[in-house]
Design a protein around this nucleic acid. Structure first.
Lengths: 332, 332
DNA sequence: ACGGTTTAGTAACACGTTTTAGTAACACGA
DNA sequence: TCGTGTTACTAAAACGTGTTACTAAACCGT
């Protein structure tokens, strides 16, 4: 910067004013030109580290994930977060913990050492989480997870509404006998989707039938299991709502074995809109899309708000839900 | 830091010596204890930004990707890079450009402004790339891509060897009539795998048959196209090597339509080991795994080496290839 | 007692910015 | 001629570290 100042024949202060477009510096156009020429000539690039030290603000957001590799959704979350951050000239410092509790703690500490302006704490499926306490020292948003006492702003998919709409979609296509191939694990998404399922039935005066609710692991194998249980009974359902696309994949297999044609003999709706599965099943699967990209964006948006009002008295933390839009293909 | 010094009754210098374990400071054990107590009591956390400014080293590596969301591989690359970086207390500053050339330029500039110690430039499939020139101002490694003149260190999958081994695996299982469902696009991976395919045939004195080489897009639809062309001819192949798992998925569909049972009537080998496809096809697909995780690790390893010898005269850039291990399932 | 060495520590500068407070030079009106 | 206001600019103090060069005291061997 001193070199630029020398070349332009001004002081460092003036260079700073010009570069940062500080108008109250009152720098005439002609001088500004001189400075820019010098910047150009010397290929000068301001040092963001020094700037961060002085400004006490690094334009960096920490992004903590549990498992990034084992899920195809991570990329979408990250992309949403980055796209919005980029617009505000903010970069993401990413750490993933592999679910290891100790690493979680040190990850957040490390990010704080690096003076990030905020932290996004993301999990790869909708669940309750226990982020380290130190995360509260800085604006934070939980993504795809939440804390029990709702004391930290969080954003998750609206699984209830998704379950409701998926079911209603089947009803609106004339189905009355609708089975639910449900995840056997106790996760928030399961309970919400199941409630949505039941409420949609109730809304249309369809009694809930316990025989139309079967469980399996949230894998293709689990889908085979649940679909077999659902379809191999007297008076089987004519439509299946599957907890996720992988279970739906299993249901497709069962349908094929039973010589049921989709959607003529059996309608199927999945969940997740997993991009390597749903479009490539035969026929392509109608499913509910998880708003990963949108959650990423929302989280950054919210962090920015929190940062910009950080000095004011703390707002009460928002618990936000984003809708899961339906992707209609050909399985209904 | 001053507060810690006051509480421990020493100077800032001493605190710095203790925290950084600078032995030539000659600080006796007892004083060190006092300092650590004070650090603990005040919950002091060193400011990595200030440290970075002073040390002219930020322990940060920039990670530039083209498209992270549209591929399930991104997570594995990132994970590999992060795992190794974390061991060295280095964090990753990630930017993804969406393939936009202008964003590429500013992305690298932004990273340089932030004084990253090195830059990894990753693409999501093996190809030639044109990273911005400014990337050369700092240790850099290309991941899954390369520049024409080999002037930047790079790491890519060994597609030739992968194609060779996949083909030889089929030969060793008794197949002589082996078809290749090949990508129609001109990408480096295609040429390398095809060369591997031909060389494996040659090694075993099997003449290359032009009718056993058919093209299609690298999608399930493309797989259907190529597999149909390969199988609907007189004397069709008894085994198929597919350019990737998605094309293999299409081949499975064709096999089903032709009532060919896999692997009895038709053996299939894929490529990529895409985790939501390969294990869930019926039967599970034998395929070549792309070394994404390993490439991530290798890139960081290499960057660290480059950083630690940055003052010496420049080494000649390495062009590294990592093997694609075979994942044997039940399609052969 | 004395010179030299070790021990235990500190003062002060440097890293590259931003920003506050201030100053010369000049214009203008009375 | 003087006071006031504006314009164009700068000196210097932060921001929080790491490190070099230095010192005062204690110790040691002769």
């Amino acid at each position: 910067m001193q070199d630029v100042a020398n070349l332009a024949g001004v002081s460092r202060t003036t260079v700073s004013f010009v570069i940062n477009k500080v108008t109250k510096g009152n720098i005439p156009e002609e001088t500004q030109q001189r400075v820019w020429k010098a910047v150009e000539a010397l290929n000068y690039r301001p040092n963001a580290i020094a700037r961060g030290l002085r400004a006490q603000k690094t334009n960096t957001i920490g992004f903590v994930t549990d498992k990034v590799a084992t899920t195809p959704f991570a990329g979408q979350i990250l992309q949403g977060a980055q796209d919005l951050a980029w617009q505000h000239e903010i970069l993401l410092l990413t750490v993933n913990t592999g679910g290891n509790q100790e690493i979680k703690e040190t990850a957040v500490s490390t990010l704080l050492e690096r003076q990030v302006d905020g932290i996004i704490y993301a999990t790869m499926y909708h669940r309750q989480a226990n982020p380290p306490q130190v995360i509260r020292q800085v604006p934070a948003v939980l993504l795809d997870c939440f804390v029990e006492d709702a004391s930290i702003t969080s954003v998750v998919p609206d699984d209830y509404k998704g379950g409701f709409e998926a079911t209603e979609f089947l009803i609106n296509h004339g189905h009355r006998k609708i089975g639910f191939a449900c995840d056997i694990q106790d996760v928030p998404a399961k309970f919400a989707r199941l409630r949505g399922f039941k409420d949609a039935l109730a809304k249309h005066q369809i009694p809930f039938n316990q025989d139309y609710l079967k469980y399996g692991m949230s894998t293709p194998e689990g889908g085979v299991l649940a679909a077999n249980a659902l379809l191999n009974q007297d008076d089987p359902p004519s439509a299946l709502f599957c907890y996720n696309d992988r279970m739906a994949m299993g249901a497709y297999q069962v349908a094929q074995e039973l010589k049921l044609s989709i959607p003529a003999d059996l309608a199927i709706v999945g969940y997740d809109n997993q991009d390597v599965i749903a479009p490539y099943l035969n026929p392509p699967l109608t499913t509910m899309q998880l708003p990963h990209y949108e959650m990423g964006k929302w989280a950054v948006e919210q962090i920015l708000q929190l940062i910009n009002q950080a000095d004011n008295q703390p707002q009460i933390p928002i618990q936000h839900k984003l809708p899961c839009p339906m992707v209609v293909r050909h399985s209904v």
